[in-house]
Amino acid sequence: MRHAVRDWLGVYAPNGVVAVGLSGGADSSALTAAAVAEADAVDALVVDHGLQEGSAAVAAEAAAAALRLGCRSARVLAVRVSGGGGLEAAARRARYAALDGAREGLPVLLGHTLDDQAETVLLGLARGSGARSIQGMAAFADPWGRPLLGVRRAVTRQLCADIGLVPHEDPHNSRAEFTRVRLRTEVLPLLEEVLGGGVAAALARTAAQLREDGALLDALAENLLERARDGEGLAVEILATAVPALRKRAIRAWLLDGGAKALTDKHLRAVDALVTDWRGQGGVAVGGGSDGTRLVAGREHGTLILSLAEYEPR
């Protein structure tokens, strides 16, 4: 654990000052202990989602434990979980927003382990959105740091036991209605049994390899994007000469920069067809805009353009 945190700090936070997102569970508690041992200063940020009776007391105890471990400070951040997409997604949005608002410019270490990475890869594989969806989580995606992506969950529990920490067991982590819980308790153990072990580590290695490949492709796609820029649009002639992997990445980056939201493979294929299979088809709604308008990618005079089109909400 200490080696993992030390290596991460040396690359991403050489000044040695970080915040830690602390839930009170084994992973984040062990991470906090290792961070205190390796970093110059650690501020603990404890999010109280308010979803369970007694959550305030759990959060207060986690903050107190952080101070006993040697954190410079410990703050409880009470949030309100709301919005669409299910309870897991809503809680995640509220948690990350609270951490981002309280971090005061510091990177925030999160306790995601190799096991979490394997679960993330499987979820991405099920979405079927290409290599990007199974690259897993990055060691650092500013401001979020994940030093433990090479550490098994069992190791964090052992560290807690070794130093006398009693982690909080979140009842949500055993509720089978949550997809990630079933992956953790049913799917991955079955894969380990059927395939002879080592599945979680293999999935994590695959994610790391794809992330390296993806970084190179993204850099090449950025070069293509700059060459294809024509004002705020993109020159179809230049895009059409590129290989699909780079062309679609360039189009994706351009759409996101232009305000597209929740892009899917279907969106990208439809916009790519404006370049490679042009038959005079209309524009493609790409998920952005506001009340009464939608963001549309279209083709005019050999150029891909983005525009806002009015529509009647249902």
Rank of each mutant, 00 (worst) to 15 (best):
R2E: 09
R6D: 02
V17H: 15
G21P: 00
T32R: 09
A33T: 05
A37Y: 01
V42A: 11
V42W: 11
A44G: 07
Q52A: 11
G54Y: 06
V58T: 14
A59V: 09
E61N: 10
A62D: 04
A66P: 04
C71T: 12
A78M: 00
S82H: 15
G83W: 03
R95V: 08
A98W: 05
L106E: 04
V108C: 08
E119M: 07
V121F: 00
L122T: 02
L125T: 05
A126T: 09
A126V: 12
I134K: 01
L149I: 04
G150S: 06
V151F: 01
Q158P: 01
C160S: 05
D162S: 13
P167G: 12
H172Q: 05
S174W: 13
E177Q: 09
T179A: 14
R180Q: 07
E186P: 09
E193R: 15
Q209H: 13
L210G: 10
L216V: 14
D230V: 09
T241K: 13
R247L: 09
A253R: 15
G258R: 15
D265N: 15
H267W: 14
R269F: 08
D272K: 09
A273G: 10
L274Q: 00
T276W: 13
D277S: 06
G283R: 12
G289N: 15
G289W: 05
G292N: 05
A297G: 10
H301A: 14
T303S: 11
T303C: 12
S307N: 04
